[in-house]
Each structure stands twice: as structure tokens, then as C-alpha cells.
Amino acid sequence: MTTKVSRKTLAAFLGPAVFALAIVGIAPLLFAVWKSLHYFNLTKRAQERFVGLENYATVLTDQAFWEAMGRTALLFIIAVPVQIVLGLIIALVLHRPGLTLFKTLTRLSLVLPMATTYAVVGLLAQVMLNQKYGVINQMLGWIGIESINFIGDPTNAFIAVILWDIWQWTPFVALILLAGLSTVPPEIEEAATLETRSNWTVLRHVQLPFLIPSLVAVLILRTADTLKLFDMPFTMTRGGPGSATEFIAVLIERVGNRQFDIGMAAAQSIIMLAVTIVLARLYIRFFYREVR
């Protein structure tokens, strides 16, 4: 049940927030659309001119753009299933009764990686993964693996970003899935554990149906965040070596900030935004259908 109020009251309550968000969120977006229709390079201001959809045509046929998109997709395809499997294991362990103190501590420590400044996460990777001075290579040495050049080699740098993404976001996935597990009615779960000794059967037939919404949330949020991923690879590798870790947001930053081609960067980001909006719509359709 909600109250009907006068337009004046409504404007007083909602106006400031809507106005502020329109100024900082929508105005720059419209400006970006306008600039994306221009040749606009900060170092060649004299050549500025309206070019229509030329930038879009260039972007859509640009190999670097599609490679960055492909890299971003590959990161998602490799990292997210690992995060889901590990996250589910962690969630299932935490969901079991007993060892309360241990579990409270674990839950607290799970919060740390996802709260950590993403830029710092990239710096940590630099320090820990260094071929000569890095502790990860020292640990690999203990189990007889030769030291690996993580940051300097294109394939290894990509793997390093994946590993670091897994470190930072597995806890997030685990906590979402744990929240999903807590929606299973305890009576049903207990009845099922009396019926069968197999944890797998309980998971498959009792818990999984309740986990579907959490899994959808994980997929959509991880997709959006992978498209946004900038800080960690930027501080870790600057997109290199070569373009091995140049994900889509890093590419756009390079084109706009280091090549000064703002018209092109605008076109790239508008295309990326279109992809994002489709995802957001899906997400909201799943979760926010009932706004009263």
C-alpha cells in the first residue's frame, strides 16, 4: 500500500536525486554519443569534424577491438566457472552445522578480497608474481616447479590475471551462493539427508533448485564486472605485454587517454554500453519484477 501525494511533494523528495544523477550519469553519456560521431583527437584539434557513423564502422572492423572483446569473454569463460565451483564448495562447507567459530572467522576473511582496492590487488600481483623476487615462484619452487615469468610473458600474464580474478571474486561468489543455500527450508533439507547418504543427491535434487536465482545473479554480475574490469589488469600489466591483457575497458582507456582519440574511444564505449544495457535488462527482469 502506498500513498498518493501532490506533484510538488513528489518533486521535493525525488527531484534532487534525479537531477543529480541525470547531470552526472546521462549528460556525459549524451555528450559521448555526440563526440562518437566526430573525428576528435586531443592532439589534432584542428582536424575535428563531423564524420557520422564512421567511428562505429572503424570500431566494428577493428581487429584490436574484437581481440579485446574476445579476451574479455575468454577471461569470463575460464574464471567464472572456476569461481562457481570453488565458491559452491566453500558455501556448502560453511552451510553445514558445527565448528561455528571457525566458520565465523572464515566468513569474515572471505569479505576481505572483494573489499580490497582493485588497484592494490594489481600491485600485489606485481610483487607476489615477480619471477625473481616473488613469493609465488618461491612456493612453486618448493613443489619442484621452475620459476615462471608471469608478468613478462603474454600467455602467463593472461593466466596471472585469471588467477588474480579468481582470488578476488571466488569469495564473493561463495557468499552469494551461501545466501542462496540459506533459502532452502531446513525441514526439506533434513528430510533429504535422512533419505540419502549422498551429499551429491541432496545438492542436485534439493539444494540446486533454490540456488538457481543466486547462480543467475552470479553470472550476470560477473559479466558486467568483467566488462568493467580495468583497475587490476591496468596496475598489474598496463594491458601488456603487447596487448595480452588488454581487456575491453583497458583498450578504451588506451585509445582515449594514451592515443587521445576521444571520438573513437566514445564509439567503443557506446558499443560496450549497449552490450551492458542488454545484460542489465536481463538482470532486472530476473530480480526486480515486483516494484510496488
Partner: peptide, 16 residues
């Protein structure tokens, strides 16, 4: 309001 969660800052950074 919710859509803002999904917008990458790199979209807004250059126009701003």
C-alpha cells in the same frame, strides 16, 4: 537507478 550498477566508468570518463 539500478542500471547505474552496470555502467562502466570508462564510458563516462572521457566526456566528463
Amino acid at each position: 537507478f539500478i542500471t547505474n550498477r552496470f555502467v562502466s566508468p570508462v564510458v563516462l570518463a572521457f566526456p566528463v
